[in-house]
């Protein structure tokens, strides 16, 4: 996963849009507005139930169904292209997962290939079962990535922080302050670099040691400025009454309302989650890869549970699709 996040960082590059004054890799202003109009808790519950499903199911049918729901949700939110670029580094990871599963699993019965003797690993046996398990885990990885992509496009960070501040005020304050300060800090970093260039210190040129020294000069200046800023910031907070709550504690203003659509989406998420738990615990949602691949649909219950879960996952998407087309529906939920 470290490998994946490293690759992703490279992939993001400079493709950033500006949201509320700070750069953000995803555009909130396109696609269906239904998901963005949801209460943060309802959206989070829907995505959370999807995440749990992705982690508990090993059955390829359930994983594929979940992936379908994710792709449809991304298409509805107008982010199919963004989803594609978000997923690209994941493809490399999928291949890696398949490779590691192939290398480590000798318990399958359908042998595809036996390698020559390798140091430490001995004679690696590649089996069809391990290949299929690797592919299913690849789908799981892509599903998990897709769920986080949906989180990025469905819930604005500001709203997430606002929801967080209800219970964890100090932590949320630290994160909110940091979020607001980051664009200014990035600009200041640019300013320091330009000032250094004017004084003849070209950051990024010279041998490694010279570059490092110049970088340190820049970082030192940035830190010195930032630490001074923090002093001013603290005084500004105190001047605005931070910490002086009195006996009643701090007051809260809830801007978000729970609407019928939130109850609907939240309800569907909980029901889908419960059905998934039942499916896994009764064995209908489980799939045996070793020693031989089991039948894809071993019992009718597998299909019943699958249909139920898909129904509860797709209802929110259907409502979201209707949100833009039927004004009556929009006015009622």
């Amino acid at each position: 996963m470290g490998f994946l996040s490293a690759l992703r960082s490279v992939k993001i590059g400079k493709k950033l849009v500006f949201m509320n004054g700070y750069p953000y890799p995803f555009n909130f202003n396109k696609g269906n507005s239904f998901f963005r109009s949801l209460h943060t808790g309802a959206a989070a519950l829907y995505l959370f139930s999807m995440l749990v499903m992705a982690l508990i199911f090993t059955h390829p049918l359930y994983l594929l169904g979940l992936s379908l729901a994710i792709v449809l949700a991304a298409a509805l939110a107008g982010g199919l292209k963004d989803l594609e670029s978000f997923m690209k580094p994941g493809i490399v990871m999928v291949l890696l997962i398949m490779g590691i599963n192939l290398l480590g699993a000798g318990s399958g019965e359908t042998v595809l290939w036996r390698s020559p003797l390798l140091p430490f690993f001995g004679r690696a046996v590649f089996t069809l079962e391990a290949l299929c398990f690797g592919a299913a885990m690849g789908i799981r990885l892509l599903a998990v990535l897709g769920i986080f992509f949906l989180l990025n496009v469905m819930v604005h960070p500001d709203r997430l922080l606002r929801a967080m501040s209800l219970s964890a005020s100090k932590s949320a304050l630290v994160v909110s302050l940091a979020l607001r300060l980051l664009p200014g800090t990035a600009r200041r970093l640019d300013g320091i670099r330009e000032a250094l260039i004017i004084r003849g210190v070209v950051v990024g040129e010279g041998r490694f040691k010279e570059r490092a020294q110049k970088y340190m000069l820049m970082l030192g200046n940035l830190l010195a400025f930032s630490l001074e800023d923090s002093f001013t910031l603290a005084e500004a907070m105190e001047a605005r009454g931070y910490g002086g709550y009195g006996k009643k504690g701090r007051s809260l203003y809830r801007r978000e309302r729970i609407r019928p659509r939130d109850v609907l989406i939240g309800g569907c998420a909980v029901l889908a989650l419960l059905l998934s738990a039942l499916a896994v615990n009764t064995g209908a949602g489980s799939f045996s890869y070793y020693p031989r691949l089991a039948e894809l649909v071993s019992s009718p219950e597998t299909l019943y549970f699958f249909s139920g879960i898909m129904f509860f996952l797709l209802v929110p998407l259907f409502v979201g699709w209707g949100w833009d087309r039927w004004h009556y529906l929009k006015s009622k939920i």
Partner: peptide, 10 residues
């Protein structure tokens, strides 16, 4: 809080 936020930003 301010110092923590500023260092987190850095």
């Amino acid at each position: 809080i301010a110092l923590t936020a500023v260092l987190a930003v850095a």
